[in-house]
Design a protein around this nucleic acid. Sequence first.
RNA 1: GUGGCCGUAGCUUAAAGGAAAAAGCACCAGAUUGUGAUUCUGGGGACUACGAGUUCGAGUCUCGUCGGUCACCCCA
Length: 427
Amino acid sequence: MSKIAAVKGTRDFYPDIMAVRNWIVDGWKDASIRNGFVEYDSPIFEYLELYTRKSGDEIVSQLFSMTDRGGRDLAIRPEITPSLARMVNQQINALPRPVKWFSTPRLCRAERPQKGRLREFFQWNCDIVGSESILADAESIYTAVDYLRSVNLTADDIVVRISSRSMLAEVLKAMGFAEDQLNTIYVLLDKKPKVSDEAFAEMAAEQVPDADLRAKMMQLPEVKTLDDIDALAHTDAAKQTVAELRELFTCLDNMGIGEYCKFDIQIVRGLAYYTGPVFEIFDRSESLRAICGGGRYDSLLTILGGPKVPATGFGMGDVVLEILLREKGKMPEFTSTIDYFVIDAGEDVFDRVLKLACDIRSKGKSASFSYKRQNMKKQFKQADSQQAKYAIVVGEETVERNEITVKELATGQQQSVNIEEFLSSLS
RNA sequence: GUGGCCGUAGCUUAAAGGAAAAAGCACCAGAUUGUGAUUCUGGGGACUACGAGUUCGAGUCUCGUCGGUCACCCCA
């Protein structure tokens, strides 16, 4: 019989890799909780329509979808935000606002795997629903940075690049662009860093035939600061969106993460549904894809048949994060250890070994023993390979006196102790 | 979805178209019947990713499939 491999783009989590995953996810949860988020989860599959409603029919080719025996079109969740929106919609009038929810879902996307992108991954999501305040955007960004800072990534390692969808829209409108031209410009801006100046000029000429408008648009990639963009914001509406973004940066400064944050007009993000401030977090060397991305999306609930409720949030995947942490040497060593390895050192004492191991366990410490009756050398080796902190030798003569020998394996020091005293010292 | 490179034991690699595919690490056992190291000895483990083809002969050359990796598309 031939062996069956793991499916393309998936990972097997052997114990040493599982330890890494748990460490990452636990870190996400801790950061969420200390920033005031509460945990939720959703089913791993949903109606296909939940995703086509938000992202269009093209999304289907990027999903793992299926039809159940009742003929229902379903898909494995490729993101959790639509589920969140569905859940919030369901109870919209009962939930105290703002809703601050987080989750660490396992997601699947049917894309071709490459560096930092697999078909199955984990993604930390934090969302704040029901507040229009720029403070919600600030808190969302702060939470992401708070986690990254907690794993010792400094402002020299990563940068949060921030812009605003609404600001860009208003500035473009102030320049004279019509509403239905905006998406075209977003795509152009998104491409700018990836293509040569000549290729960009060519694309611009194609997409924006009007020479006057095009000249104005070409100023945008040159914008480096909020003052630069302010100079291009000729309407009150545009001025206001710039002021709002300034307020966001002021908040981030006051929260103590100003050095991580940078205005960047070229952060546009996917066209789908962002309506306000948007951000992406990158490694400083920019050799990896984005570690994290998010922003304000005020119309998602409407798309799912709910009322208009403002929302902002972010997602952070485990795959790029793990690559970055390894590259930066920020990944701790994980060792699985047990507290006590109980060694059988004589005839007819194994029942005492078994009882002692279980008594230790009932005290909340971990204990292990050999399944085989072997010589002590073997048992000590086994204790070593399990990274036991202590070995306990149960010998024929000592156990008659109700005594055992406890040896600290790191130092080699050992002493005889009374069994009851030993056990009571554990609690 | 498109293209480049790659695929030999659990891992790292060797074998220039020619014998029964080799070694180190790892794993298991023994030397060693009251204390972990080191050392030594032995063992299991590969239909050379899978399938076709060329050849007297294929791990090696050709094609296809699958998988890995990197870039493009996309990135919610």
